[in-house]
Design a protein around this nucleic acid. Structure first.
Lengths: 137, 137
DNA sequence: CTTAGACCTGTGTCTAGAACACAGGTCAAG
DNA sequence: CTTGACCTGTGTTCTAGACACAGGTCTAAG
């Protein structure tokens, strides 16, 4: 299997496959023409990687998990612990996004009542530069 | 004003100041000893940049906005239009985060009922590799 | 004056997770 | 044999800074 074939068969991109290959997560054989050739084992390996990515694991996490399992150990304890860390992070980011979203919405609605102004030497855009005060009121 | 002074006075880092300087958003003068020297104009410029960043504008957006205002034009129309784009993006990311968070929580709770398993040649971790089916039920 | 040490400097490199650019290779049709 | 479509690996780019590092500055003590 060539890069693009593998990528298409799992609905991802050739660049992604190449990226994981560079990191050593996939280990294709060099075929005669110099192209990378992926076996069925690589297919299930990639399937695993993509599932883990969708669950929020980082690529570094996945490397760890794979290393653990290649030592013959059960990766499950590691997986359980890592996902808790990632969930915490995701929750934080999620809340940051929520806060930002609300702030942006407020800005848009407040700015509707305000006029455009030309810049001055000490003010690039009054909408932005006065928003902090508006926000507090 | 030196890099660190400027940074501290606006509660940011010297690296951030240096970064904006590299991009040309701040234009310090070289002082005798080769150090960058920032004027009061730079202080308000940086204040503007930091406010805009907090509102979700990208650094590239900010460059655009500043260019507009340096041409003597009102940056307000640009600002109004850019923030709407950024809000859409933020909303999308926010929803993606929400979905991911729920998925992760579901995984954690489902996995509590499942045992650890050793890896097999075609399975790195059954928790992850079987989750898609679990999710659908 | 010298030296020690604290702090500061600019420049260059690194991060995540790919996406993109590019010169060249492969392969089937004509 | 050539054209053209598609494919390849490698190297570079992206965000928004954080970090490393060799060396410079500056104040206080000796």
């Amino acid at each position: 299997m060539k890069v693009t074939e593998l990528a298409k068969s799992l609905r991802t991109t050739a660049d992604t496959v190449r990226y994981y290959t560079r990191l050593g997560l996939l280990k294709p054989v060099k075929s005669v023409n110099g192209y990378k050739s992926y076996s069925n084992k690589e297919v299930s390996r990639l399937k695993f990687i993509l599932s883990a990515r969708k669950l929020g694991f980082s690529v570094a996490d996945i490397m760890q998990i794979i290393n653990e399992s290649e030592d013959g150990k059960s990766a499950c304890p590691l997986v359980r612990s890592l996902i808790k860390e990632r969930l915490e992070e995701t929750t934080k980011q999620f809340q940051a996004m929520l806060t930002l979203r609300n702030k942006m919405s407020l800005a848009i609605s407040q700015w509707e009542k305000m006029e455009d102004k030309a810049p001055t030497p000490h003010m690039v855009c009054h909408l932005i530069e006065n928003f902090e005060q508006i926000e507090k009121t």
